[in-house]
């Protein structure tokens, strides 16, 4: 049953991911990307992480994609311009993707990446948020702080880029 759902979600995710890069209209691309993100959220539920699933929907689908759409609608990118700026990178991108898939396949095949799933019990689900919070604030506190610092730098950088100085 779980596998069946996994296959449904992953097939929809892959198909919509391919559509994101293949359709011409940027707004349609954004819509397919939303579908892809929702499938990933569903997979987090299968991986017994309802908290991550909710956050995935909240941040990526609810906020990031809205800003994407906002930018696409305001900028009104012509279809031709988008095509022009893409094709020089396609060979490099393709090569990198193949390398990535090869590494992932190698690791999975050798059994280096395994994530045994526990039973789908109620206690495991109800403690989910607590476990993530405890891990973030004890074991992974330094990476967590580094990430917040990077975010802060990005935030300040974005504001500096768009700030207009008053000339008078």
């Amino acid at each position: 049953m779980e596998q069946l759902f996994f296959y449904i979600f992953s097939i929809v995710a892959i198909v919509s991911a391919i559509l994101v890069v293949s359709v011409r209209n940027p707004v349609h691309s954004a819509l397919y990307l939303i579908i892809c993100f929702l499938q990933v959220a569903a997979m987090f539920v299968l991986l017994r992480s309802p908290f991550l699933a909710a956050v995935q929907v909240f941040i990526y689908v609810g906020a990031v994609m809205v800003l994407f759409l906002f930018a696409v609608m305001v900028l009104d990118l012509g279809k031709e311009r988008l095509k022009d700026s893409m094709h020089s990178q396609s060979i490099l991108g393709g090569a990198l993707a193949i390398v990535l898939f090869f590494i992932a396949f190698y690791l999975v095949y050798n059994g280096d990446i395994v994530a045994p799933l526990g039973a789908y019990t109620e206690t495991a689900l109800m403690k989910n948020t607590e476990v993530i919070g405890a891990a973030l604030y004890t074991k992974y506190i330094y990476p967590f702080e580094v990430v917040s610092l990077i975010l802060l730098v990005a935030l300040v950088g974005a504001i500096t880029l768009v700030m207009r100085h008053k000339d008078n």
């Binding site: 909710a54 689908v61 609810g62 948020t129």
Partner: peptide, 9 residues
Amino acid sequence: NVGILYILA
């Protein structure tokens, strides 16, 4: 256990 997050999302 993530009810309110689900609703906001």
